[in-house]
Design a protein around this nucleic acid. Structure first.
Lengths: 339, 339
DNA sequence: ACAAAGAATGAAATCGTTTACAACAGATTT
DNA sequence: AAATCTGTTGTAAACGATTTCATTCTTTGT
């Protein structure tokens, strides 16, 4: 009975060589003689040997894994970024550890914990709300931010959020809208602020004044979109079009107003942001700004691996192109505006 | 300059004790004298020492992480299960490694790889399509299945799928439907088969014959729901109600038929399965069967940790209660059926 | 024919912990 | 007073790989 798992010692014995040779056969086959190589390989097959990753990592002073820190695992927005990350990390033989920052009581402390725990060779940060000064830790692993980012010059993969907002506003203005509102993400979030700023600038550039009471605060979730719908329905003087800082909010809004008999886009035009999968399956299909999330994940992983391999703590940033997707949730404004 | 990270040796030296004492202070504080304990702890604080997880794991013959294998990371259905898993694994000091089974060419081989790689103390399997005989590996870690499951008696966390289908059919029959169709998941999948079987049985129990041409095959995705919509629209004799094996397919179907001017539930009634977040935000809100996904994740993690701690390869299974959620996508059949 | 270079291998140190065992002091029992 | 126990600490051996350095055996150049 071989109850125990075979070690490199067992293989060495079976092949009649030293452990050094076994190790070399597996990592740098070119330096060992063809005949020995074959002997070793058949001994490996015979014993069913698998290298013990923990021992290997200890000796090589690495962990072989990368931590992905995200605010909320359950948020489907991130799952496609994860898929992109995995598509690079897995082939490169890195494990992908997932951790929730907002799960515990103190997110900043959790961030610091992962930064110092030495459990990963690198960190992908998908949560922009974490304290930048946590990074002043000696010997910390390289960190790459994706989507959100902080004031500090951390390497990051991002998207031209302001430009996205401008695309949305431009489209609505071209359709004839003059009464355009905006539903934001949570205040303080950098995505929120950049898109809001882009929205504001775009409005001035098309010569439409911004109405502060038409700026509604959300938190990117469907529920907050539905809440915005209630607020909109209660308005006496409603905007004829709304730009949402996330598709999820747009979905929540659209469902809620439709259930009240409001027609989209006849009564109100809607533009989202992200192009989540469902956007094209709604009725009407949602006009939105596409963020290539898989691509974001891929670039973030590539950047991080580059830093890990070169041993640097800093690196380049990357800007991913976004795309305006015209569908059917935005149309010309109604003839008569209410109020 | 303390460029290097402090090791247990450094702490021992600073505190004037042996490494054994440092280790004991950190893991079993009760066995060391109060004064020494304080000396060690202040030395730890002073040096900024963090135990090297890799070394610790090697010595303790564990890895400190659990692998979650899922068919497709990008599928949002799984993200809430992940959240449930994380809520148990993180406090228990286990890392959560995520891997995609369908990413590479040979899923079974990938499964086998993770089973033998020794990179995790346990595996959570969310992909029921993997070969059961892969489990005949000596010294493999404990595995728990969630949602899907295989013929082999693996510990699993599941849901009464057949009962869910029966709830859906019962509801539709009570509303007066006699022409009920079903959109399945991919053939061969156990979820698909159990729900289909439940559907079939429920039909006979309410005395409605099953029409094979009203059984459409999907793959759980929104796209396949939209494809089912096209098929349904092309039928000369249409069912007045459809039960979908996933909410995603129901969403894809509903959007597609609505865009063709079909009214839900006036023209066709829809019942989904899962209760994904968007279900309540659609117009009309989707009637469905709730699967408590967070709960599923929690139980799976608990089961797995139990097996890891007790050193067993087998363990109990668990059945999670589902719930019928009545919303507005199913109503009485139209007066006149087409055909 | 002999030195130098090259190719292939092994011995042993090392990575940073944990823990079995031994050692020792002081307290308690006989 | 000897023997036993209890509580605390240190010594040193693992854990399973990788890699430096030394060694042996060929091969090549002069």
């Amino acid at each position: 009975m071989d109850r125990k798992v075979a070690t490199i010692q067992d293989v060495a014995k079976a092949a009649g060589v030293s452990t050094a040779t076994v190790s070399r056969t597996l990592s740098k086959p070119s330096v060992v003689a063809a005949t020995t190589r074959e002997a070793v390989l058949s001994a490996v097959a015979e014993t069913g040997y698998r290298v013990n990753a923990t021992a290997s990592n200890l000796r090589r002073q690495r962990t072989g894994s990368v931590i992905v820190l995200l605010p909320n695992i359950a948020n489907p927005f991130f799952s496609q970024i994860l898929a992109g990350l995995a598509s690079i990390l897995t082939p490169a033989q890195y494990g992908m550890l997932i951790a929730d920052t907002q799960a515990g009581p103190d997110p900043d402390q959790r961030f610091r914990h992962y930064l110092t725990s030495g459990q990963a060779d690198g960190i992908v940060l998908l949560d922009g709300s974490l304290a930048p000064d946590a990074l002043d830790i000696p010997g910390r692993p390289p960190v790459v931010m994706a989507c959100e980012w902080m004031t500090r010059d951390l390497p990051s993969v991002r998207v031209e959020n302001g430009k996205g907002a401008a695309m949305a506003v431009g489209h609505l203005a071209r359709l004839g809208h003059r009464a355009i509102g905006h539903v934001t993400g949570p205040r303080g979030n950098l995505l929120t602020e950049t898109r809001l700023e882009g929205f504001r600038e775009a409005l001035t550039s098309v010569g439409v004044p911004m109405r502060p009471d038409w700026i509604l605060e959300g938190d990117f979730s469907m529920d907050s979109g539905a809440a915005a719908a209630r607020a909109w329905l209660d308005m006496t003087d409603r905007p004829t079009a709304l730009f949402f800082s996330s598709d999820e909010m747009a979905v929540g809004f659209m469902g809620a107003v439709q259930r009240e008999g409001v027609r989209v886009p006849d009564d109100v035009s809607i533009v989202g942001f992200d192009n989540i999968e469902i956007a094209q399956h709604l009725s009407p299909a949602l006009t939105t700004i596409r963020q290539p999330r898989t691509q974001i994940g891929i670039r973030a992983a590539e950047l991080l691996l580059g830093m890990i391999e070169s041993g640097t703590r800093t690196g380049p940033s990357d800007l991913i192109e976004i795309e305006f997707i015209r569908r059917d949730s935005a149309g010309p404004p109604p003839r008569k505006t209410s109020g």
